[in-house]
Design a protein around this nucleic acid. Structure first.
Lengths: 342, 342
DNA sequence: CTGAAAGCGCTAACAG
DNA sequence: CTGTTAGCGCTTTCAG
């Protein structure tokens, strides 16, 4: 006696079986046509395509991925989507992977390592074909999780760090160092730093480290420092920092900002307050954002191409998925942009 | 005689069965503990949790979603991640949905409707719990696909349009109209417009429509127009536009820009060229980006809170998933920011 | 409160 | 070139 089939809730949509029935072919033939895999006669292909159109079939990648032990999803983790930076990375990643049919599942950590750990766990459960993580450093647990999962991993990170997977990026320490060297060469001697809560942004503090190293090598010290709390908007933070520094340390002749948005805000303050830039006060930032270069005096800064960085990360991910090897560390470098503010 | 089992490639990781074996319980018990669903005795729970830790189990959401006919993914489609706008929306969406365990699968269309159609198809195949689409208008085919799929849909869009799902947004036409009305009231009479390839950005052209309507109502016409090709960076485009307009139509007294980045670039040109703002030339933009408000003279603009918009869209998506009703159209409005540039 | 069995929709493996 | 069959790893249903 046949056991009665248990009723299950169906997703509701049409399935391969429906298409197969409609076209008078087997399911696997439909599957092959859809995935464009294996040899199919033109006649079969046409029959299947007609049937698909007729029943309005939408493939179920959940089922497909389960059956083939691997999804077309790529997990992407960035520190923040608020900043003016990482969405360019994300766009680069998407442009690189979407033509190959991959989709990005995106999460942001707000620079918190515990959140990153949670996200990694959550994204791994989707059995992604690869993961791309933009992060300065991981928790021990996260690193372990990533290694244990054996997921194809590309890290967008500081190249001074030891990566778990393939790393792409550049050395923030060097970027800061180059700026410091430039300041020293230009003859600035009473130098200040303006940043925004560096505990969260390890990249920025690395740049600051490098900056100080370069100054020290030239026998110069940072004479003043202004850290603006994070809740402030970046450009206002820059204004505030310049105002504060000029009041508390009026003899300074140059300021290094943790990033361009602050530097631009600082530049605006100088315009308003009638402070001559760079004669009275020199300014430099980091990132090379477009607006900085559109200023009446283009901003002196360090340019990193974040879009290309994301694209490269995406390409590396595809290569890894393809079973190819990629360099353990790819340093994309940066360039010191000698503007007219320092 | 028993048929030999066919070998299948396994994902490699540990499965529920492994945990169950380790803990000496059934798979379903493990499943219940993980999903925190159904009544479980404390003893069982503890046993299972120990076993999970021991074998290092990572759930497979692909299998879980397939079995339960629905994923925890939310498809998100935005026009672009390059612009300074939509990543705020995305962050808002993520902040709203991630606490509830949902993840966003993200795609960008570069303002192309065919790309949107492709993305919708692709994302639907992941059987998302909901979709959030930021788009001015859809292709007929896309609209059909979305309706047929019965996916929970939230559109972030212009509220003048008839939406397919639940819409959140505001009227770009009205935003332009308010700016035009303000220009008329301030007494500007020789007014120009500066934009960037509006064929792609339907929102911008809607604002321009509204702007002209307001001027017409006051008996004023736009006397000059400068459209800068898209490849140009926005702030340089603004510089270029002002330069061009002042040369070709030197009698203009005000310019309406399609967005703040252009307006800021235009403002910079005025600073460099010694054009008094707003006495000689008034400027206004759209978006209310932070940098515009940090300018020596805060930019006159229309502010829309894109982060809150994204968050609201995410909350609506969660409500729909929950089976609740949401308003067909939620107008979040905007606010005219009377700066010092117009 | 716990478990056995069936099956979600698809594709890999193995024939023909 | 096309088809049959047996799972992928999980959750639902039904039964205790």
């Amino acid at each position: 006696m046949r056991v009665k089939k248990k009723a299950r809730l169906r997703t509701g949509g049409t399935t391969l079986a429906d298409v197969a029935r409609e076209g008078g072919v087997s399911q696997i033939t439909v599957s092959r046509v859809i995935r464009n895999k294996g040899a199919i006669s033109d006649e079969m292909r046409e029959r299947v395509e007609r049937a698909i159109g007729k029943v309005g079939y939408v493939p179920n990648r959940l089922a497909g991925s389960l059956a083939s032990a691997g999804s077309d999803l790529i997990g992407v983790i960035v520190p923040s989507l608020r900043s003016i930076i990482f969405h360019h990375v994300l766009q680069g990643v998407n442009d690189a992977i979407s033509a190959a049919g991959y989709r990005s599942v995106v999460g942001s950590t707000d620079f918190r390592e515990e959140e990153e750990d949670r996200l990694v766990t959550s994204l791994l459960s989707w059995r992604p074909a690869a993961m791309i993580i933009a992060s300065f450093d991981h928790m021990e647990a996260t690193a372990h999780r990533l290694r244990a999962s054996k997921v194809k991993l590309v890290e967008i990170t500081d190249t001074d760090r030891a990566p778990i997977g393939a790393a792409v990026g550049f050395s923030h320490r060097k970027a800061g160092y180059e700026t410091g060297k430039y300041f020293a060469k230009r003859g600035y001697r009473r130098i200040a730093y303006a940043g925004q809560d560096n505990r969260k942004d390890a990249y920025a503090s690395r740049r600051y480290d490098g900056f100080r190293d370069a100054l020290n090598a030239a026998g110069i010290a940072v004479v003043a420092e202004c850290m603006v709390p994070v809740p402030h908007d970046s450009s206002f933070a820059g204004k505030l920092a310049v105002e504060t520094l000029l009041r508390d340390a009026p003899t300074i002749d140059a300021i290094y900002f943790s990033h361009d948005e602050m530097a631009i805000g600082g530049y605006f303050h100088c315009l308003e307050a009638g402070v001559a830039v760079p004669e009275r006060l020199a300014l430099a930032g980091f990132n090379g954002i477009d607006l900085g270069q559109a200023l009446p005096k283009p901003l002196t800064t360090v340019l990193s191409d974040r879009y290309e960085l994301g694209k490269l990360a995406g390409q590396h991910a595809l290569a890894l998925i393809d079973g190819k090897k990629v360099a353990p560390v790819t340093d994309v470098g940066f360039s010191l942009v000698k503007g007219r503010t320092a």
